[in-house]
Design a protein around this nucleic acid. Structure first.
Lengths: 205, 205, 205, 205
DNA sequence: AATGAATGAGAGTTCATTCAT
DNA sequence: TATGAATGAACTCTCATTCAT
């Protein structure tokens, strides 16, 4: 069996085990067994537990970012872009719960190297959202030089809210990606105040 | 030394070590040493690593919930209540970074028993926010029977956004609890759409 | 059982196993079993295989040097001092074959840290012999400023010859320490040329 | 590439790695890589790590013995023969430090099979020296039936001293083969006693 | 109330060795 | 002739936990 395919198998198994157990509690034995190979082969291809986990983080992060990017067309309005991105995000996390667990829960509790690794991907998403907000602000011809810091905070809040909703949606399988994205847009775009006043958001045509 | 005080010392040490290292990577040796007692005493008082971690989660969760509760007066408007709660929340997490790390990062990656334990506290906060939203909806005389499910989703998003902002604020010490709370209210209460339109939120008098 | 005694037991076992198998081939399992304790205890007291081996080298080297020193009186002639030292040396190595194996064979093949460690003790012995030779040269009123380098070479040769004879004597148990020392003195003190001419050396009265 | 040459490459690499690391610490991976071939080929040609090490010992031992033999003419006086042999010995060990390390340090700590293997070559050298001493004794018309045992002891001492000087000379590159051989002859042939009395040895004409 | 002494179980990692090609 | 792919077995080291005092 060619090396590339074996490596994919190993990463699949590793993502699953790391996602379920966490970095420390996962054992290389279990990963190797789930991948259907011997432990030494895992070491031959991926060098160490740390590198294996890093490789998992990297692969899952890139897949998630790619999925979001693929879901967004840049030639539409900002709210539509945000809605498309959120839909893609919720769909991807729902389809890859272990990958999402690795990124969201496990990588963050594993200490420096992993936090940094997952931070890179998160920053990419945050940058995407930041650009959207800035663009929307431009569209609205409002205060074009909004303080970077405020926009950064808002982007963090958007991403955090989306992450929380992803966890919520993954817990309750009856929640679809569309519903999660709609809730998110209602929350983020309209604001609770508007919602309370009866003004809700809907997908722009 | 009386038992209660010894136990507090141990929990302090445990929260610190668990917060920094995570459940699995933390060692009872290090906790005992940091607490200034021998390991058997830790076992005598707290029985096992699992129970010790559970005790940490419980104590820190109660402290956080209590802090938020203490910051909120129930005889004011909903947005004011939310703002007060957020301010208390950000202030508390900033003052207890290890406790916050235990609740936010570490407990979630430790598997079933701990996730459930921290879930209880989170649900309490979510319930608080849910009640606020429902109350606000009532105040606004809008759609008084808003679907529970939608409100639940919104509450999750609010809490998630607040958690993300807490992480952001703890990373950058120049961000005060007030600033984080303001960003949060601008985001959540006014909504991005309103912000873009130049309508921003400010602390109600 | 008190810690000091346990540590001695462990070192005894370690010297035996290291002496027989060598540093790499020795297993901590075997050492622990021979010492009659569990492996973790060995690690608790001696930290690592490397430190354990270093402790063995140090203990055995000090014992050997002490034995040689104890066998020599400094108020007698140089040849007598040399003979006494050699006798003590051969007696000690014969009584502690594993310790001698650790110092002579195993420590030298284990790489930098151990070579350096055993080098310290060897240098002490070489310095002792160097001083003897220098003193003898002084006694004989000959060339009092003999080049340090030549004396150093001679001392190396003396120690090397003694080491070889120790190995030879340990292999053949019928060779006593006295006989080895006598052979050594005949060789070193009289020289092969004198031996060939029928002049041999005998213990000075 | 013809088999013989490949084998030589492998032995060269093996001697280098074994010399530096020792038998156990050397890895077949490193040897194969240094030899520029794949691991299975090493096994195809040399069967096992043990046989490979044995082959190294044998080759290096034969090379050393051959070098000493080549340096000695048997039609000269015994002291001259010894001096010639020592010069050749020191020159060879200086030129082949890894081979010398294999023979002197590594083979001795590897347990039975290797000790025996290197013992064969050592015995050959010892026999050569023994014959020299016996011949010299005959030349000197002294006690022609000197006890074998004593001669054997002397030969061991000579070889041991030479080995020690080889190590000394290899450590300090400013020591030439000639100087080491001269020191050795002064020590062994004249004896320390004579040296002290001002009688030194010089190369016989 | 408190601890020094001790361990069973299991972790990550490495290595000599073999097979199919 | 030569190798990429693969592994069984063994190693060092760690840790939660307990007992005797």
């Amino acid at each position: 069996m060619p090396r590339a395919e074996r490596e994919r198998q190993m990463l699949d198994a590793a993502v699953r085990v790391f996602g379920e157990r966490g970095y420390r509690a996962a054992s290389m034995d279990e990963i190797a067994e789930l991948a259907g190979v011997s432990k030494p082969l895992v070491y031959l291809y991926l060098n160490s537990k740390e590198e294996l986990f890093t490789a998992c983080i990297r692969r899952e992060a890139q897949a998630l970012v790619a999925a979001v990017r693929a879901g967004v067309r840049t030639d539409v309005a900002a709210d539509r872009q945000l809605w498309d991105g959120l839909t893609a995000f919720f769909a991807h996390t729902a389809e890859h719960p272990d990958g999402w667990a690795v990124l969201h829960s496990q990588a963050r509790s594993g200490g420096e190297p992993f936090v940094a690794e997952v931070g890179v991907a998160r920053d990419e998403i945050v940058a995407f959202v930041t650009a959207l907000i800035a663009e929307a602000a431009g569209e609205a011809h409002q205060d074009p030089v909004r303080a970077e810091r405020e926009v950064a905070g808002l982007a963090q809040a958007v991403v955090g809210a989306a992450e929380a909703l992803a966890g919520w949606a993954n817990t309750d399988p009856s929640v679809s990606a569309r519903e999660a994205a709609t809730t998110m847009m209602n929350f983020a775009w309209s604001g609770l105040g508007n919602l309370m006043a009866g003004r809700r958001w809907s997908v722009p045509s």
